[in-house]
Design a protein around this nucleic acid. Structure first.
Length: 350
DNA sequence: GGCGCAG
DNA sequence: CTGCGCCAACGCATC
DNA sequence: GATGCG
């Protein structure tokens, strides 16, 4: 999930105006972000970019605009993908507060993160007042039309909370984000994922695996809501720290560049209240447009990377799983987090 | 992408 | 009419 | 205590 954050950080890098001297060139941008921002704005749209169509009753504008120069992806291809993938996506998206990464000027333009309703409404999305006190309503995407509408509004990446709006204080899943040092081979990621699965299985917890669409893997543990956010995070931390203790040369549970050299960082912090993680079957707002794809554990050994599937190749995967959903059992799992699980792991770690 | 606001 | 700002925010680690 | 990163 951290992969997505490089987009917003570019936005927040846009700094205190006036901190930089605008000396020589009056048009000199204060930051790189400002420059990408400026370019497309002043450039007149070419006529073929302005083409429109309608999907699911939603007017789609600028269908021919290129959103990723790297893969040559057009906006319409993104919209069509989300329409096609909606049946797979909605079970993981519906009723969960969502954070959006939007790129109105494409991946090379300024991107921004959005988690609340804003002045410019997102048509079709559901607003939930009061879940985030002191802020505008949180948002959910509950229908295919809402998903298509979001794509029309240049939503590329979607991140979801680990709880439903109906039970917002009790997470219904725990998530481990396996984030490898880029220098590491993919084999190591596979090994660590299997170790994580094995530990969870020892604790009698079934887990599911998906590519992140970026560099790593996500391991998801579905839960019947019971424990609160603090307990869920404590459990996730205990799991990550236990794995790091058993394989200290391969795994770290500590964020920070020093610890992560040549290792896989198991990010358990995605399990705090308000944290969110890239959605299953969601597109990543990165060059190449990777897709986060659920896989069967039996498929893991033959995967080739976190961005093995992209918007350009995802269609065949959807066709392939049409009658064999690798996460078919997800909705049938009934398991809870207990204090004993966390305490047992912490005791074992001493 | 689109809204509100300043010029 | 045009241009511009805005559209998240938090724990953790490091210095 | 202020940054920087995920």
């Amino acid at each position: 999930m951290q992969d997505a954050r490089n987009a917003p950080s570019r936005t927040s890098a846009r700094t205190p105006r006036g901190e930089r001297a605008r000396t020589s060139d009056a048009a000199a941008p204060a930051t790189p972000a400002a420059s990408v921002h400026r370019l497309p704005r002043t450039t007149r749209r070419r006529r073929d970019d302005a083409a429109e169509t309608e999907i699911d009753g939603i007017r789609i504008t600028s269908t021919r605009r290129v959103i990723d120069a790297d893969s040559g992806t057009h906006k319409l291809e993104l919209v069509r993908y989300y329409e096609r993938a909606a049946p797979w996506i909605l079970p993981h998206l519906r009723d969960r507060p969502v954070s959006l990464v939007r790129a109105p000027r494409g991946l090379s333009g300024e991107m921004f993160f959005q988690r609340h309703s804003a002045r410019a409404p997102l048509p079709e999305l559901t607003e939930h007042e009061g879940l985030d006190p002191g802020h505008p309503p949180l948002l959910t995407i509950d229908t295919a039309r809402a998903l298509v509408s979001a794509a029309q509004m240049d939503v590329i990446e979607l991140h979801t909370w680990n709880a439903s709006v109906h039970d917002i204080e009790r997470p219904d899943r725990v998530l481990f984000d396996l984030d490898p040092d880029p220098a590491l081979g993919w084999d190591r990621v596979i090994e660590v994922a299997q170790s994580t699965r094995a530990l969870l299985a020892e604790l009698k917890l079934e887990s599911f695996c998906k590519t992140s669409g970026g560099r790593g893997l996500h391991i998801v543990v579905p839960l019947t809501p019971a424990a609160g956010w603090e307990d869920a995070k404590a459990f996730a931390r205990a799991v990550a720290q236990h794995l790091a203790a058993v394989w200290p040369t391969q795994i770290t549970a500590t964020m920070g560049p020093e610890h992560r050299k040549k290792k896989i960082f198991i990010d358990y912090l995605r399990n705090a209240r308000g944290a969110s993680t890239a959605l299953a079957y969601g597109v990543r707002a990165r060059p190449g447009m990777g897709v986060s794809v659920p896989i069967d554990w039996d498929e893991l050994a033959s995967t080739t990377g976190g961005a093995q599937w992209t918007l350009a190749t995802i269609d065949a995967r959807l066709t392939q799983i049409e009658h064999a959903d690798p996460w078919a059992a997800y909705g049938r799992v009934r398991q809870k987090l207990t204090a004993e699980l966390t305490l047992g792991l912490e005791a074992a770690g001493k």
